[in-house]
């Protein structure tokens, strides 16, 4: 029905403004073995509990965010900009 995600740039916004991509996974190095790429593209955890996902604030600031949340309780622990803490 409704729920609010606290965007670090825009404040609390309804989930309709966001698009979920899925788990936050570091992209393998260019010279990583194909098995690593295979796992990166196809293998996913499906945890009951804490999970970090990439969400796009597509209806707002259009930033990619890291949403850390609990899949069982729906509690949102933190929402940060995906570029934060990266080079």
């Amino acid at each position: 029905m409704a729920s609010l995600i606290p965007c670090p740039h825009c404040g609390p916004r309804p989930k309709e403004e966001f698009t979920v991509r899925g788990a936050v996974l570091p992209r393998p190095a260019a010279d990583a073995p194909v098995e690593e790429w295979q796992a990166h593209v196809y293998l996913r955890e499906n945890p009951r509990g804490d999970y970090a996902e990439h969400w796009h604030h597509s209806g707002g600031c259009r930033r990619w965010l890291v949403v850390k949340r609990n899949t069982a309780t729906h509690a949102v622990h933190s929402v940060t900009d995906a570029a934060e803490g990266r080079p």
Partner: peptide, 22 residues
């Protein structure tokens, strides 16, 4: 829009959805 207009000051702006429209 779900933006809380009471917190939007004069001169302030927000990028949001109005219904289906950005």
């Amino acid at each position: 829009t779900a933006v809380n207009l009471a917190l939007l000051p004069e001169g302030g702006a927000a990028q949001t959805l109005f219904g289906h429209l950005g």
